[in-house]
Design a protein around this nucleic acid. Structure first.
Lengths: 244, 244
DNA sequence: CGGCTTCTTGATCTCGATCAATCAGCGTGG
DNA sequence: CCACGCTGATTGATCGAGATCAAGAAGCCG
């Protein structure tokens, strides 16, 4: 590979030129610190749709920051009974739940062509010793994931099917907005079955409620294209009191 | 307070003499490192049953290690719609989910007389810079909590009421065993309503299924006293395939 | 075009919520 | 010591949201 091409490739992966730097792990770092961080991350070949980043039970070595595309995390217990525990969008960290047992607790699969930055955890931990901001950011990322998990528990144990879907759409909308995309118009990278599995609903229910939302003028859905027509109403529905 | 009494009180709180040291945060520390850690923790007056350790929304300052007793974490959204997201037993860390937003995302309440060690987070973070084992243990604790949360999501979205209760009992049994108590005979510090809220079930359902377990010879329950008669069967029930 | 998978729509059934008493503890004060 | 009230636990009867079963319809790609 010619030197120029190589340099170009490397440049692409540099945190300082990355459009996600304001959301991603090194967000709090000064320029020179970011260079140190930059030096430990590894480029990965893009994953094609359906390819696994890692599989459940394989040894934990790295966390990954999503650079583009999206992924899902699936945990299998016994035979055939899968639980989809998370979707990951650009700038989000994948694999933190594997630290404790030193193996990944679920398989993470690309939902579309996806690129990630690999961050070897021992290097990251070592670097977090000398960079308090990095350490803090890591603590915050994990803490946030715990908070999000608790929200999900609330959703699964208290919300109706309609509220779950509304929460799902407003959540996605918000995540797109933060990343600089339209919060009103986006494409779902996951199937209806994935959505249902994630929300604890049957596919049929997801489909039906999507239809209902459509006829109520809340969203316009065509296949995986989504247009949010009444974000306000959707938000209210999502937050609605325990309906009793 | 006379010096001797004071010294005695301090001794009680020392990690090196604490019976939980093999489970708690400083578990990986050498003697001299443990002393440093010991120096940052603060004694708290015991909480009485029903007292709050901290309230939802109050500023995050510390994490807490449970020393004796037990607590529940409750998150309120809107009015009256509470979600119980966690029970905490001795050696477990409370409050880690508050790091990110710098406020506690839920109220934590003692279920019985409870003592905790307060660990100011800024001191802990600073100390984790020079003590890699402490840092690692903190990462592992958070990672474990994320894994437990994912298990809870699976429980809430896939398991039947029977399986939820069976999982709850086997989980408690296991936690007691690890702490050196009998895994077969223990006292519930939480009400049926708490259990139901936590597991996403109505109180009536909890009560009914407990009755059924009793008549099936799986457990003997009398008020809050529990005797597990057939842990094997309970475990199988808890892990059972997605019943369809 | 056929042979996939994914999505939608309809009909029925079921688990657990909800509503409604009743009962058991348990501290309080007469 | 017992009656009173209060909270928590149990038990019974009914109901409904959403799962499941069963076809079709619509993409999608060779």
């Amino acid at each position: 590979m010619p030197v120029t091409a190589r340099r170009c490739l490397l440049n692409e992966t540099r945190c300082q030129t990355c459009s996600l730097s304001s959301l991603c792990l090194p967000l709090a770092l000064e320029v020179q610190d970011m260079e140190q961080f930059d030096a430990i991350i590894r480029r990965r070949a893009p994953l094609k749709k359906g390819e696994a980043l890692f599989r459940q039970g394989s040894p934990f070595t790295s966390v990954f920051a999503v650079r583009s595309g999206s992924l899902k995390q699936v945990t299998t217990e016994g035979s055939g009974d899968d639980q989809l525990t998370n979707f990951y969008l650009p700038s989000e960290l994948v694999g933190l739940d594997g630290i404790d047992e030193e193996r990944y607790p679920g398989t993470v699969v690309a939902l579309e062509t996806t690129t990630v930055c690999e961050i070897p955890f021992d290097r990251l931990d070592a670097l977090s010793e000398s960079l308090p901001e990095l350490r803090g950011q890591l603590y915050r990322s994990m803490s946030k994931e715990m908070r999000d998990d608790r929200r999900m528990m609330r959703l699964l144990s208290r919300k109706t099917a309609d509220q779950r879907l509304a929460t799902f759409f407003t959540g996605l909308s918000d995540r797109f907005r933060r990343r600089g995309y339209s919060p009103y118009s986006f494409r779902l990278s996951m199937s209806r079955a994935d959505i249902g599995n994630y929300l604890g609903l049957a596919v049929e229910t997801v489909s039906r409620i999507l239809g209902r939302f459509q006829s109520q003028g809340l969203v316009a859905v065509s296949g995986r294209e989504v247009n949010i027509l009444d974000l306000q109403a959707l938000t209210e529905l999502a937050e609605e009191e325990g309906a009793h």
